[in-house]
């Protein structure tokens, strides 16, 4: 089951570039929330701050409060502990090339020291089914390398990998941007089903995608959160002129 995320006064820097400025926002539990905006607006940085991936870059830093459920992730937990609660799907599929499909899916468990074979088997089946990949790969789970799948399958495997650790929140950083239309629609269907069980935050540059999958949408511009509201409101009656310009295609 997912938890809500409360963000207060979040600021982030890459070197001397101030990439996120005073972000305040509440992401409700068990819903999909879309983040849109032109490239370089800070939306990817924002999701990377939600599981403290942002700070893996030596020149990056962040200040502010991010509460995941009851936990202030910057003060009350280590990055590693937070990332185990938060699944992340990246822009390009990134399977571990040396591992089989099976090992890829449960890598989050195995690399953290989980050894119970029965539960591992169950988890692989559950996650692959959730990611709608089970039927396609169940016969060569341990035979094929994760890197041998097609791009869309790889991305779904990466989603299964993120789901295998039973996360509370699922972050997706433009998960379909490197995929063909058919795979994209499969991923969107998936998000639609998963959002009843997990809190999903999805970054996208595709406004139709945001409209299709998300209840709430935030619009980022130049490191600031310009507007955050229900998706319907954002796309039909935005409060801010800049949001309107963006969704009507006047820039970006």
């Amino acid at each position: 089951m997912g938890v809500g995320i409360q963000v207060e006064d979040l600021n982030a820097w890459y070197g001397s570039t101030h990439t996120l400025q005073d972000i305040n926002l509440h992401i409700p539990a068990n819903h999909a929330t879309a983040l849109i905006g032109p490239s370089g607006c800070g939306k990817s940085t924002f999701v990377r701050c939600l599981n403290r991936m942002h700070e893996t870059n030596p020149i990056a830093r962040a200040t502010g409060v991010v509460k995941m459920g009851e936990i202030d992730i910057y003060r009350e937990a280590s990055p590693v502990e937070i990332r185990r609660r938060v699944g992340m799907v990246f822009q390009r599929p990134n399977p571990f090339p040396t591992m089989s499909i099976y090992d890829n899916v449960i890598s989050g468990l195995k690399l953290n020291g989980f050894r119970n074979r029965r539960i591992l088997d169950e988890t692989v089946e559950r996650s692959l089914k959730q990611a709608a990949l089970w039927e396609e790969v169940k016969d060569d789970l341990k035979k094929k390398s994760g890197a041998s799948l097609s791009g869309g399958q790889q991305q779904r495997m990466c989603i299964a990998r993120a789901l295998a650790v039973d996360p509370e929140v699922l972050l997706m950083d433009e998960p379909a941007s490197a995929l063909d239309p058919v795979s994209t629609s499969k991923i969107e269907d998936l998000i639609f089903q998963l959002k009843t069980q997990y809190t999903i935050v999805i970054v996208t540059h595709n406004m139709q995608q945001a409209a299709r999958v998300a209840e709430n949408t935030g619009f980022f511009l130049n490191g600031k959160l310009v507007e955050f509201d229900s998706t319907h409101k954002i796309f039909t009656n935005p409060r801010d002129k800049r949001t309107e310009d963006y969704i009507t295609g006047r820039f970006g």
Partner: peptide, 29 residues
């Protein structure tokens, strides 16, 4: 070894040392 693969491991909550040994070193072995 692509950075994306290290990020995949780190994103799963794998500690850095384990990422270096079981992912980076293993991929480059």
């Amino acid at each position: 070894v692509p950075l994306a693969i290290r990020e995949a491991a780190l994103g799963l909550g794998v500690p850095k040392w384990r990422t270096a040994v079981s992912v980076s070193l293993r991929t480059a072995s």
